[in-house]
Design a binder for these strands. Structure first.
Ligand code: SF4
Ligand code: SF4
Lengths: 142, 142
DNA sequence: CAAAATGATACTAATTTAGTATCATTATAA
DNA sequence: TTATAATGATACTAAATTAGTATCATTTTG
Protein backbone atom coordinates (compact mmCIF):
# COMPACT_ATOMS: atom_id res chain seq x y z
CA UNK A 1 0.00 0.00 0.00
CA UNK A 2 2.57 2.53 -0.96
CA UNK A 3 1.76 5.68 -2.82
CA UNK A 4 5.25 6.29 -4.15
CA UNK A 5 8.04 3.89 -4.99
CA UNK A 6 11.70 4.58 -4.49
CA UNK A 7 12.17 5.84 -8.04
CA UNK A 8 9.62 8.53 -7.46
CA UNK A 9 11.05 9.46 -4.08
CA UNK A 10 14.53 9.72 -5.57
CA UNK A 11 13.22 11.69 -8.52
CA UNK A 12 11.65 14.22 -6.19
CA UNK A 13 14.86 14.60 -4.24
CA UNK A 14 16.92 14.98 -7.38
CA UNK A 15 14.57 17.50 -8.93
CA UNK A 16 14.46 19.48 -5.69
CA UNK A 17 18.20 19.57 -5.57
CA UNK A 18 18.47 20.75 -9.15
CA UNK A 19 15.78 23.37 -8.53
CA UNK A 20 17.75 24.81 -5.64
CA UNK A 21 21.17 24.56 -7.18
CA UNK A 22 22.92 27.74 -8.07
CA UNK A 23 24.02 26.28 -11.36
CA UNK A 24 21.19 25.50 -13.69
CA UNK A 25 22.85 22.46 -15.20
CA UNK A 26 23.73 19.82 -12.65
CA UNK A 27 25.65 16.64 -13.42
CA UNK A 28 24.74 13.32 -11.82
CA UNK A 29 28.06 13.26 -10.02
CA UNK A 30 27.07 16.30 -8.03
CA UNK A 31 23.64 14.96 -7.18
CA UNK A 32 25.31 11.77 -6.09
CA UNK A 33 27.66 13.66 -3.79
CA UNK A 34 24.79 15.46 -2.13
CA UNK A 35 21.89 13.05 -2.03
CA UNK A 36 22.01 9.53 -0.67
CA UNK A 37 21.19 7.78 -3.90
CA UNK A 38 23.32 5.17 -5.70
CA UNK A 39 24.81 6.75 -8.78
CA UNK A 40 23.81 4.25 -11.48
CA UNK A 41 20.25 4.23 -10.18
CA UNK A 42 20.20 8.00 -10.14
CA UNK A 43 21.44 8.10 -13.71
CA UNK A 44 18.69 5.78 -14.78
CA UNK A 45 16.11 7.91 -13.07
CA UNK A 46 17.36 11.13 -14.58
CA UNK A 47 17.55 9.60 -18.02
CA UNK A 48 13.93 8.59 -17.71
CA UNK A 49 12.95 12.07 -16.55
CA UNK A 50 14.81 13.45 -19.53
CA UNK A 51 13.07 11.13 -21.96
CA UNK A 52 9.75 12.09 -20.48
CA UNK A 53 10.53 15.75 -21.00
CA UNK A 54 10.82 16.73 -17.35
CA UNK A 55 14.52 17.49 -17.70
CA UNK A 56 16.79 18.74 -20.43
CA UNK A 57 20.14 17.06 -20.74
CA UNK A 58 23.52 18.25 -21.94
CA UNK A 59 26.18 15.79 -22.91
CA UNK A 60 29.91 16.14 -22.63
CA UNK A 61 32.18 17.84 -20.17
CA UNK A 62 30.34 20.50 -18.22
CA UNK A 63 27.06 18.85 -19.10
CA UNK A 64 24.34 17.52 -16.87
CA UNK A 65 20.63 17.93 -16.34
CA UNK A 66 18.43 20.98 -16.10
CA UNK A 67 14.78 21.38 -15.20
CA UNK A 68 12.61 21.59 -18.28
CA UNK A 69 9.92 23.56 -16.43
CA UNK A 70 9.71 25.95 -13.53
CA UNK A 71 9.33 24.11 -10.22
CA UNK A 72 5.76 25.35 -9.89
CA UNK A 73 4.92 23.58 -13.13
CA UNK A 74 6.20 20.19 -12.02
CA UNK A 75 3.60 18.03 -10.32
CA UNK A 76 4.00 14.97 -8.14
CA UNK A 77 1.17 13.29 -10.03
CA UNK A 78 3.26 13.39 -13.19
CA UNK A 79 6.32 11.94 -11.52
CA UNK A 80 4.29 9.10 -10.11
CA UNK A 81 2.83 8.37 -13.51
CA UNK A 82 6.27 8.32 -15.06
CA UNK A 83 7.72 5.82 -12.62
CA UNK A 84 4.70 3.88 -11.50
CA UNK A 85 2.29 3.99 -14.37
CA UNK A 86 -1.26 5.21 -14.37
CA UNK A 87 -2.66 6.68 -11.19
CA UNK A 88 -4.90 3.83 -10.16
CA UNK A 89 -5.48 2.43 -6.71
CA UNK A 90 -6.84 -0.85 -8.04
CA UNK A 91 -6.37 -2.43 -11.43
CA UNK A 92 -9.09 -5.11 -11.18
CA UNK A 93 -7.12 -7.44 -13.39
CA UNK A 94 -6.33 -11.06 -12.64
CA UNK A 95 -3.91 -12.96 -14.82
CA UNK A 96 -4.43 -10.38 -17.54
CA UNK A 97 -8.20 -10.75 -17.50
CA UNK A 98 -10.44 -7.95 -16.30
CA UNK A 99 -12.48 -8.93 -13.27
CA UNK A 100 -16.00 -9.86 -14.40
CA UNK A 101 -17.49 -7.89 -11.50
CA UNK A 102 -15.94 -4.63 -12.55
CA UNK A 103 -19.21 -3.03 -13.67
CA UNK A 104 -21.18 -3.62 -10.51
CA UNK A 105 -18.58 -4.12 -7.80
CA UNK A 106 -19.21 -1.87 -4.84
CA UNK A 107 -15.71 -2.31 -3.55
CA UNK A 108 -14.37 -0.94 -6.78
CA UNK A 109 -16.74 2.00 -6.55
CA UNK A 110 -15.53 2.88 -3.09
CA UNK A 111 -11.91 2.58 -4.10
CA UNK A 112 -12.54 4.72 -7.16
CA UNK A 113 -13.99 7.41 -4.95
CA UNK A 114 -10.92 7.41 -2.76
CA UNK A 115 -8.74 7.40 -5.82
CA UNK A 116 -10.44 10.46 -7.19
CA UNK A 117 -9.54 12.40 -4.09
CA UNK A 118 -5.98 11.09 -4.02
CA UNK A 119 -5.36 12.02 -7.62
CA UNK A 120 -6.69 15.51 -7.20
CA UNK A 121 -4.37 15.98 -4.23
CA UNK A 122 -1.39 14.63 -6.14
CA UNK A 123 -2.10 16.98 -8.99
CA UNK A 124 -1.90 19.78 -6.50
CA UNK A 125 1.54 19.00 -5.18
CA UNK A 126 4.18 20.93 -7.07
CA UNK A 127 7.93 20.76 -6.83
CA UNK A 128 8.08 24.23 -5.22
CA UNK A 129 5.78 23.06 -2.50
CA UNK A 130 8.29 20.31 -1.74
CA UNK A 131 11.47 22.33 -1.68
CA UNK A 132 12.03 23.12 2.00
CA UNK A 133 15.56 23.10 3.31
CA UNK A 134 17.25 20.26 1.50
CA UNK A 135 19.76 18.36 3.50
CA UNK A 136 23.13 17.99 1.90
CA UNK A 137 24.90 14.90 3.03
CA UNK A 138 28.60 15.08 3.69
CA UNK A 139 29.24 17.73 1.06
CA UNK A 140 31.66 20.56 1.80
CA UNK A 141 29.58 23.61 1.03
CA UNK A 142 25.88 24.25 1.61
CA UNK B 1 0.23 2.04 -6.14
CA UNK B 2 -2.42 -0.37 -5.12
CA UNK B 3 -4.66 0.13 -2.17
CA UNK B 4 -5.63 -3.49 -1.75
CA UNK B 5 -3.79 -6.67 -2.59
CA UNK B 6 -5.40 -9.80 -3.84
CA UNK B 7 -5.69 -11.32 -0.38
CA UNK B 8 -7.78 -8.40 0.73
CA UNK B 9 -9.91 -8.47 -2.39
CA UNK B 10 -10.53 -12.19 -1.95
CA UNK B 11 -11.24 -11.72 1.73
CA UNK B 12 -13.91 -9.15 0.94
CA UNK B 13 -15.53 -11.44 -1.60
CA UNK B 14 -15.47 -14.37 0.77
CA UNK B 15 -16.87 -12.39 3.68
CA UNK B 16 -19.58 -10.93 1.47
CA UNK B 17 -20.55 -14.38 0.33
CA UNK B 18 -20.72 -15.69 3.86
CA UNK B 19 -22.70 -12.65 4.93
CA UNK B 20 -25.31 -13.30 2.28
CA UNK B 21 -25.41 -17.06 2.62
CA UNK B 22 -28.53 -18.61 4.01
CA UNK B 23 -26.48 -20.95 6.12
CA UNK B 24 -24.50 -19.20 8.78
CA UNK B 25 -21.62 -21.63 8.63
CA UNK B 26 -20.06 -21.91 5.21
CA UNK B 27 -17.32 -24.36 4.26
CA UNK B 28 -14.46 -23.38 1.98
CA UNK B 29 -15.65 -25.86 -0.61
CA UNK B 30 -18.83 -23.87 -1.09
CA UNK B 31 -17.04 -20.56 -1.34
CA UNK B 32 -14.74 -22.14 -3.86
CA UNK B 33 -17.68 -23.33 -5.94
CA UNK B 34 -19.16 -19.83 -6.03
CA UNK B 35 -16.28 -17.40 -6.09
CA UNK B 36 -13.40 -17.51 -8.52
CA UNK B 37 -10.70 -18.07 -5.96
CA UNK B 38 -8.26 -21.00 -5.84
CA UNK B 39 -9.20 -23.24 -2.95
CA UNK B 40 -5.89 -23.55 -1.12
CA UNK B 41 -5.43 -19.80 -1.27
CA UNK B 42 -8.95 -19.26 -0.03
CA UNK B 43 -8.33 -21.62 2.85
CA UNK B 44 -5.24 -19.71 3.82
CA UNK B 45 -7.10 -16.44 3.74
CA UNK B 46 -9.99 -17.72 5.81
CA UNK B 47 -7.65 -19.25 8.35
CA UNK B 48 -5.97 -15.91 8.75
CA UNK B 49 -9.32 -14.15 9.16
CA UNK B 50 -10.21 -16.74 11.76
CA UNK B 51 -6.98 -16.23 13.67
CA UNK B 52 -7.53 -12.51 13.61
CA UNK B 53 -10.97 -12.95 15.07
CA UNK B 54 -12.96 -11.86 12.04
CA UNK B 55 -14.40 -15.33 11.57
CA UNK B 56 -15.34 -18.23 13.80
CA UNK B 57 -14.44 -21.67 12.56
CA UNK B 58 -15.99 -25.07 13.07
CA UNK B 59 -14.04 -28.20 12.36
CA UNK B 60 -15.30 -31.53 11.19
CA UNK B 61 -18.08 -32.61 8.89
CA UNK B 62 -20.67 -29.87 8.56
CA UNK B 63 -18.13 -27.33 9.71
CA UNK B 64 -16.89 -24.20 8.05
CA UNK B 65 -16.57 -20.51 8.75
CA UNK B 66 -18.99 -18.01 10.19
CA UNK B 67 -18.79 -14.23 10.56
CA UNK B 68 -17.63 -13.23 14.01
CA UNK B 69 -19.39 -9.85 13.77
CA UNK B 70 -22.38 -8.36 12.04
CA UNK B 71 -21.48 -7.10 8.55
CA UNK B 72 -21.92 -3.51 9.67
CA UNK B 73 -19.18 -4.05 12.23
CA UNK B 74 -16.63 -5.31 9.73
CA UNK B 75 -14.48 -2.57 8.20
CA UNK B 76 -12.33 -2.59 5.11
CA UNK B 77 -9.59 -0.80 7.04
CA UNK B 78 -9.28 -3.81 9.32
CA UNK B 79 -9.07 -6.28 6.47
CA UNK B 80 -6.36 -4.26 4.82
CA UNK B 81 -4.41 -4.14 8.04
CA UNK B 82 -4.71 -7.87 8.45
CA UNK B 83 -3.40 -8.72 5.01
CA UNK B 84 -1.20 -5.77 4.20
CA UNK B 85 0.04 -4.47 7.49
CA UNK B 86 -0.29 -1.00 8.91
CA UNK B 87 -2.23 1.57 6.93
CA UNK B 88 0.65 3.66 5.67
CA UNK B 89 1.10 5.19 2.26
CA UNK B 90 4.84 5.61 2.72
CA UNK B 91 7.15 3.83 5.10
CA UNK B 92 10.18 6.10 4.71
CA UNK B 93 12.53 3.24 5.37
CA UNK B 94 15.50 2.30 3.25
CA UNK B 95 17.36 -0.92 3.90
CA UNK B 96 15.83 -1.04 7.36
CA UNK B 97 17.01 2.46 8.24
CA UNK B 98 14.58 5.30 8.74
CA UNK B 99 15.11 8.10 6.25
CA UNK B 100 17.12 10.89 7.94
CA UNK B 101 14.81 13.51 6.44
CA UNK B 102 11.72 12.12 8.04
CA UNK B 103 11.27 15.00 10.49
CA UNK B 104 11.38 17.82 8.01
CA UNK B 105 10.49 16.24 4.67
CA UNK B 106 7.70 18.12 2.95
CA UNK B 107 6.95 15.24 0.67
CA UNK B 108 6.28 13.06 3.66
CA UNK B 109 4.02 15.71 5.13
CA UNK B 110 1.94 15.87 1.98
CA UNK B 111 1.68 12.11 1.76
CA UNK B 112 0.70 11.94 5.42
CA UNK B 113 -2.10 14.37 4.75
CA UNK B 114 -3.42 12.23 1.92
CA UNK B 115 -3.02 9.17 4.06
CA UNK B 116 -5.12 10.66 6.79
CA UNK B 117 -8.00 11.10 4.40
CA UNK B 118 -7.60 7.65 2.90
CA UNK B 119 -7.60 5.96 6.29
CA UNK B 120 -10.67 7.78 7.44
CA UNK B 121 -12.46 6.68 4.29
CA UNK B 122 -11.35 3.09 4.71
CA UNK B 123 -12.58 3.07 8.26
CA UNK B 124 -15.93 4.08 6.93
CA UNK B 125 -16.36 1.21 4.50
CA UNK B 126 -18.23 -1.64 6.12
CA UNK B 127 -18.97 -5.08 4.78
CA UNK B 128 -22.69 -4.24 4.45
CA UNK B 129 -21.83 -1.30 2.25
CA UNK B 130 -20.04 -3.75 -0.05
CA UNK B 131 -22.69 -6.43 -0.32
CA UNK B 132 -24.55 -5.60 -3.54
CA UNK B 133 -25.72 -8.47 -5.68
CA UNK B 134 -22.92 -10.99 -5.51
CA UNK B 135 -22.29 -12.86 -8.67
CA UNK B 136 -22.22 -16.59 -8.30
CA UNK B 137 -20.06 -18.19 -10.89
CA UNK B 138 -21.25 -21.38 -12.50
CA UNK B 139 -23.15 -22.55 -9.44
CA UNK B 140 -26.57 -24.14 -9.86
CA UNK B 141 -28.73 -21.93 -7.69
CA UNK B 142 -28.57 -18.14 -7.30
C1' DC C 1 -14.03 -45.98 11.13
C1' DA C 2 -14.82 -43.09 6.78
C1' DA C 3 -15.66 -38.66 5.22
C1' DA C 4 -15.60 -33.84 5.35
C1' DA C 5 -14.16 -30.27 7.33
C1' DT C 6 -10.34 -26.91 9.52
C1' DG C 7 -5.26 -26.15 11.74
C1' DA C 8 -0.60 -25.57 11.00
C1' DT C 9 3.21 -24.96 8.39
C1' DA C 10 6.42 -25.05 4.86
C1' DC C 11 7.32 -24.55 0.27
C1' DT C 12 7.30 -22.65 -4.74
C1' DA C 13 6.28 -19.47 -8.44
C1' DA C 14 5.43 -15.08 -10.39
C1' DT C 15 5.78 -10.29 -10.36
C1' DT C 16 7.47 -6.01 -9.09
C1' DT C 17 10.93 -3.15 -7.26
C1' DA C 18 15.60 -1.89 -6.77
C1' DG C 19 19.84 -1.59 -8.41
C1' DT C 20 24.32 -2.78 -11.59
C1' DA C 21 27.18 -3.04 -15.50
C1' DT C 22 28.80 -1.89 -19.98
C1' DC C 23 29.70 0.25 -24.00
C1' DA C 24 28.65 4.00 -27.19
C1' DT C 25 28.33 8.89 -28.05
C1' DT C 26 29.11 13.76 -27.33
C1' DA C 27 31.24 18.06 -25.85
C1' DT C 28 34.93 20.69 -23.65
C1' DA C 29 39.34 22.20 -22.84
C1' DA C 30 44.29 21.53 -22.44
C1' DT D 1 43.86 15.93 -31.25
C1' DT D 2 43.27 13.72 -27.40
C1' DA D 3 42.03 12.94 -22.49
C1' DT D 4 38.20 13.59 -19.72
C1' DA D 5 33.81 14.22 -18.00
C1' DA D 6 29.58 13.99 -19.04
C1' DT D 7 24.95 11.56 -20.99
C1' DG D 8 22.45 7.64 -24.11
C1' DA D 9 21.06 3.14 -24.56
C1' DT D 10 20.36 -1.24 -23.07
C1' DA D 11 20.76 -5.42 -20.84
C1' DC D 12 21.39 -7.68 -16.78
C1' DT D 13 21.05 -9.14 -11.61
C1' DA D 14 19.31 -9.06 -6.94
C1' DA D 15 15.97 -8.43 -3.45
C1' DA D 16 11.46 -8.09 -1.86
C1' DT D 17 6.72 -8.77 -2.14
C1' DT D 18 2.74 -11.03 -3.73
C1' DA D 19 0.34 -15.05 -5.13
C1' DG D 20 -0.42 -19.55 -4.73
C1' DT D 21 0.58 -24.90 -3.56
C1' DA D 22 1.27 -28.94 -0.93
C1' DT D 23 1.07 -31.85 3.04
C1' DC D 24 -0.03 -33.78 7.07
C1' DA D 25 -2.38 -33.41 11.50
C1' DT D 26 -6.64 -32.81 14.03
C1' DT D 27 -11.51 -32.62 14.78
C1' DT D 28 -16.40 -33.74 14.19
C1' DT D 29 -20.29 -36.19 12.40
C1' DG D 30 -22.64 -40.11 11.01
S1 SF4 E 1 -13.92 -7.72 -7.10
FE1 SF4 E 1 -14.32 -5.57 -7.40
S2 SF4 E 1 -12.50 -4.67 -6.65
FE2 SF4 E 1 -11.98 -6.78 -6.81
S3 SF4 E 1 -11.15 -6.88 -8.81
FE3 SF4 E 1 -13.26 -7.32 -9.16
S4 SF4 E 1 -14.10 -5.35 -9.55
FE4 SF4 E 1 -12.11 -4.89 -8.78
S1 SF4 F 1 12.57 11.68 1.52
FE1 SF4 F 1 10.76 12.23 2.62
S2 SF4 F 1 9.28 10.88 1.76
FE2 SF4 F 1 11.17 10.08 1.02
S3 SF4 F 1 11.65 8.62 2.57
FE3 SF4 F 1 12.64 10.43 3.30
S4 SF4 F 1 11.10 11.31 4.58
FE4 SF4 F 1 10.01 9.77 3.47
Amino acid sequence: MKLITRDTDYAVRALCFIAKCEREIVPVSELNRNLRIPKPFLRKILQILNKKGMLKSYKGKGGGFMLAFAPNKIFLADLIEIFQGSLKLNKCIFKKRICPDIKTCKLKKRIDAIQKHVISELKDITLVSLLGETRTYGAKGG
